[in-house]
């Protein structure tokens, strides 16, 4: 049996995004173990780290907890690239408005900030989360949709059941208000282009005999033929990171409102052919 002992959610909408990101920067700076690492963080890294740090604090984990027995299980969105540095690289990579590798090598390369490499790596969300919490246990790092996040949830639960960790940090983060994602939505004529949303969610799970429970996670999978539907499917995959946060929120909301011995189920279907059913149990006491 598993108990949710801490959780947090962050999201921002398109119009208020600039303001939200300023707030995100201020908030995460105040919590970082080493502020010098702030410049290495992409927006996605910040979303994930902030959410995890808040959840950890809220969960009131014992101070003497052995951090080698805490696992981190994360799902991130795709394309976490900043526009400004790439724009700069473009300008310094062209001849007659065409990409020119010679110019790229001479000008763009020399103006390229090494930090860009770190910011583009999707696994850095895992580094920043582990570093700031001091966690050295197991991990699973994946992307980019609901079925992948469910694998995080399942893996965290399995490691708890196997007794190799005491706590599982299960999270998702996606940087969707991003120029590359918007280009992608535009190409696909996707509705989310009008209102891309950044989001993050983290639940901290522990094994226990009492309390709020995720009783079971069941999935079925019937792979779709992607061959002739790549464009169509690409649009769907971009929707999915947000879905992770929505399901996390649904789990927590339903668990909080669940009565003793009352069971609820969350069902979700993805466009890749995965169906998920998460069975929740009511609180006996917390």
């Amino acid at each position: 049996m598993r108990i949710k002992s801490g959780y947090n959610f962050i999201s921002s909408d398109f119009e208020s995004n600039q303001l939200a990101m300023k707030s995100l920067d201020t908030e995460i700076k105040g919590l970082l173990k080493d502020r010098k690492l702030f410049k290495f963080m992409s927006k996605q890294d910040k979303l994930m780290a902030l959410c995890a740090l808040k959840s950890w604090e809220q969960a009131k984990i014992e101070e003497d907890q052995d951090l080698s027995r805490v696992g981190i299980y994360l799902c991130v969105g795709i394309l976490p690239f900043d526009e400004a540095p790439l724009e700069k690289l473009c300008v310094k990579s062209i001849t007659d408005n065409k990409f020119d590798i010679k110019v790229f090598s001479d000008l763009a390369y020399n103006s390229m900030n090494p930090l860009l490499t770190f910011k583009c790596l999707p696994n850095m969300a895992l580094f920043h989360t582990s570093y700031n919490l001091g966690v050295t246990g197991r991990y699973f790092m994946t992307y980019s949709g609901v079925s992948d996040w469910v694998q995080c949830l399942q893996k965290g639960i399995k490691d708890l059941e196997d007794g190799i960790i005491d706590y599982a940090i299960v999270g998702s983060a996606c940087d969707q208000d991003n120029f590359l994602v918007r280009q992608f939505y535009q190409r696909l004529g996707h509705d989310l282009n009008k209102d891309p949303i950044d989001s993050a969610s983290v639940m901290i799970l522990r094994r226990d005999d009492l309390g709020l429970q995720i009783k079971d996670v069941i999935e079925s999978y019937r792979p779709v033929d992607i061959g002739n539907k790549i464009s169509e499917i690409q649009g769907k995959t971009l929707e999915l990171p947000l879905g992770c946060s929505q399901i996390s929120l649904e789990i927590v909301t339903k668990l909080e409102s669940a009565k003793e011995n009352h069971c609820e189920t969350i069902d979700h279907h993805t466009d890749f052919g995965t169906s998920i059913s998460i069975e929740l149990g009511g609180a006996q006491h917390e």
């Binding site: 999707p122 790092m141 992307y143 992948d148 694998q151 999935e219 019937r222």
Partner: peptide, 9 residues
């Protein structure tokens, strides 16, 4: 017939 696990570590 089970969802793929994608590792990006």
């Amino acid at each position: 017939n089970h969802s793929p696990a994608i590792h990006i570590s």
